[in-house]
Design a protein around this nucleic acid. Sequence first.
DNA 1: CGACACCTTGAAGAGGTTCAAGAAATGTGG
DNA 2: CCACATTTCTTGAACCTCTTCAAGGTGTCG
Lengths: 239, 239
Amino acid sequence: MDPKSIKVACSNCNLRELCMPMGLATEDIERIDTLVASRRKLTRGESLFRNGDKFTGLYAIRVGFFKTSVTTEDGRDQVTGFQMAGEIIGLDGIVNDLHTCDAVALEDAEVCVIPYDMIETLSREVTALQQHMHKVMSREIVREHGVMLLLGSMRAEERLAAFLLNLVQRLHARGFSQSELVLRMTREEIGSYLGLKLETVSRSFSKFAEDGIIEVKQRHVRIMDTEALKQMVNPQTCH
Amino acid sequence: MDPKSIKVACSNCNLRELCMPMGLATEDIERIDTLVASRRKLTRGESLFRNGDKFTGLYAIRVGFFKTSVTTEDGRDQVTGFQMAGEIIGLDGIVNDLHTCDAVALEDAEVCVIPYDMIETLSREVTALQQHMHKVMSREIVREHGVMLLLGSMRAEERLAAFLLNLVQRLHARGFSQSELVLRMTREEIGSYLGLKLETVSRSFSKFAEDGIIEVKQRHVRIMDTEALKQMVNPQTCH
DNA sequence: CGACACCTTGAAGAGGTTCAAGAAATGTGG
DNA sequence: CCACATTTCTTGAACCTCTTCAAGGTGTCG
């Protein structure tokens, strides 16, 4: 068998549980395998797509870590999310066939390129794929509701606590530690995401460390007291 | 012809351009007409669905004005959007077959109930409907990016300016005035949406009125200087 | 008409920002 | 591989925006 064709088959990808529908018939699996047209490697700092780029397809992250951000005409920008292996980027482009945000690799990365017309065609025939696509988009909508809640009603330390818990939870789902993580983004990028200045992020980190909730050494974070973080996010629930 | 069947046909609805795909073959139009299972009337203050409710379908607003909001366990809540005629509510429920936000009518309203399984089935057969669904969800994702930008990087008056411009633009697309609007929500609800306290919203309204940018009489707002509002949102662009 | 919800405005206070300086890490070129 | 430049991070102090608390006004609905 041609080793190249093995390489781009979703059925052989250990991330398929994350980015593809589960429980398919073998026949459908073969069809899903044809979805991924190619792979693309990116080096740290490289853009996967930019605001204004023509939308051609979605990207499933194989390895690496991304940020997406939107920018105003006057140059302010807002990080709208951080994405890791198994997650899908590019949904913003569907409405107007144009990307409205930037996607940048925060470390060397590789993505599967999924042409959008193939998704359309195939999801008409494979019900599981159709449902999967709807769920992926709905999940993104719900995630953003959570971010709005964070930005609209939490104070600085609550935001950072929620951010850390979310990151570590997603990393844990990928087989990493529940208590240790390496931040792939700068304080400024965290701040942009959380609606805070980088100094405030830094101070909040220091405060958490002072209180013994975490240990911070630059981008290495060890969570010492997960419960304390959870209570910060949900202050009322103090049984 | 049975008058009841006329009444629930999308093809006779003057909002179809807003909530349904355009440019369909007559055959497809007839099938789209079957999507709407029923209509539901709500009185002011009534919930269309609540956080935790089982997800059964989407709702297309025929008349009225809604808000959606998410709530934390400790009781804080965040308005995630205001929806008007022709817009679709309920997309949050798709991921987990459970609604994760509340949808409340801010005035007497009527919605078309669209069972989700019918959307799934029909959008496998009618390409235009499939594309429409994807676009509706993508549009919501992009809208939320905009809200994140607002919440994360704008100051109070910029937020209110952006809010007013967005509202009046959507109303204008529905045939209403470009300069006059009646707010269907309270200052507190506006504040929740914008991540501000109601007092700050009130003060910002007063400031705008003082500067001659708008006239405010309770919930009646007349925009006197649209350009001034636009410049608040995009301060740099001062040619 | 009275009760209630909603809105406005003032004054004091808190949380986060801004500005600034220095330390630590990272990357680069010789 | 080391030295230097650059980026990133931390911390302090002053400042500002928005919040909080409070009181009074306005509008609405039974």
